[in-house]
Amino acid sequence: MCSCIGKGSKNVRRTPGGLLFRQTWNNLQFVTTASFLLTVYSDNLTSARKAVTCPQGNAAPSELLVFAKSQVDYILGNNPRGTSYMVGYGNNYPKRIHHRGSSIVSIKVDPTFVSCRGGYDTWFSSKGQDPNLLVGAVVGGPGPYDDFADVRNNYEQTEPATYNNAPMLGVLARLSGGYGNLNQLLPGALPSPPPPKTALARRQAPSPLLISQTETHSWLLKQKTYFRYTVTVTNQSPKTVKNLKLSITNLYGPVWGLSKSGEFYMFPTWVTSLGPQGRLEFVYIHAAPLATITISRYDLV
């Protein structure tokens, strides 16, 4: 990672236009893969609230993401030639790629049979533009001095490959999900939750009601960890509970499954009582430990 962003002891070579350069033949396979790894590692570092320690100084997670974006920008046309190396993107892109299907006319245009040899002699050797546009394909890309020849038999630079596109798709998906303000984690991208934690609140003797809370999910959003707790109120008496009122303190988020009146929480509108051994469940979410839930009032009938 350090060598890619220019902070290593032996850095990866770059073209004058700033593109990472490994070799002449299909260099973009290395660029898109490195950009994808930089993007993933950037998010992992942010989750851990760490930076990269490099021989030439530390690098924040955002620096990795910014550099990955610069490589994608280059591929899509922000380079000295003003050439997009993704076919069909922009106004100036390769039009004579090293691809048999793209270099042969579509059967919908000309249904004449094309033999294997004929496809090579008649179509592949043509100096004309591709009759079949392979939209979205990323070709091999420029040479060490940002040079590029849009010639079909220049396979080192004009041949597309799935392993060029695959990692770039991941980078584009990440950037579309929050590059603008460098949100390192996408909303809704949930890490694996820790094992559930169950806590029992104090029972107010001689209350027949038992309250239990369980952490059922957690996720990281904008460098803050949120928790979802499920609360169960169980009626352990042989009688029916009515007019239940709960007091909830140390709560910093919304509650689902209860009605609120003033400072108390009560049965939701669709529940009027809790029969013997009956259970009432509700949920709350906040970025804090368990809230404090106590029973303020109830009637047994």
Rank of each mutant, 00 (worst) to 15 (best):
D147H: 08
N164M: 00
Q23D: 11
A48C: 10
N183C: 11
L37Y: 05
P131M: 07
P195C: 01
G141V: 13
N27I: 03
T24R: 05
K7Q: 08
I248R: 02
A166K: 00
V271D: 03
G101T: 10
V138N: 00
V231R: 09
V31C: 06
T158W: 01
C4N: 08
V109W: 05
G6N: 03
G257F: 12
S125H: 14
P191Y: 07
K197V: 15
N79V: 14
K222D: 15
F30N: 04
V72S: 09
N153Q: 14
N78E: 10
D73V: 11
K50D: 09
L169V: 14
Q129E: 15
D121T: 05
F267A: 11
I104P: 01
V87P: 09
N132G: 00
G128T: 08
L28M: 12
G253S: 06
T230P: 01
N165S: 09
G262A: 04
W270G: 05
I211P: 00
L200K: 06
K69M: 09
R49P: 00
Q204V: 15
V40K: 04
I211C: 02
V231W: 02
L182E: 02
G278P: 14
F282Q: 12
S115V: 06
A48Y: 12
Q29S: 14
Y85E: 05
E156S: 15
S62W: 01
L186I: 14
S273R: 03
T230A: 15
P254I: 01
S207A: 04
I293S: 05
P194V: 08
M1D: 03
L246N: 03
M86F: 07
A287N: 13
R297N: 09
P208E: 09
F67S: 09
K95N: 13
K50N: 08
P16G: 09
S247H: 07
Q157D: 12
W123T: 04
D121I: 04
Y120V: 06
R13A: 07
A149Y: 06
I293F: 01
N92V: 13
H217S: 13
F67P: 00
L172R: 04
G278S: 14
S296R: 09
G18N: 01
N243H: 14
K95I: 14
G18E: 02
P160W: 00
Q56R: 12
Q129W: 11
L220Q: 14
T294Q: 10
K224A: 15
S47Y: 11
G253A: 08
I211Q: 00
S212H: 06
P160A: 01
S103H: 07
G8E: 04
N132R: 02
G141S: 05
N250G: 12
G17K: 01
G170S: 03
A34M: 14
V87E: 05
R203E: 06
D147V: 10
S176A: 08
T232W: 07
T112I: 13
A149Q: 08
L200H: 07
Q23M: 10
S237G: 06
Y41G: 06
T33R: 05
T294A: 13
S9W: 11
P94C: 10
L244W: 04
C4K: 13
K69S: 03
A287Y: 09
D147N: 10
L274W: 09
N26P: 12
R49M: 13
L37W: 08
L19W: 00
N154K: 05
L300S: 04
Y284A: 09
P254L: 08
H286D: 10
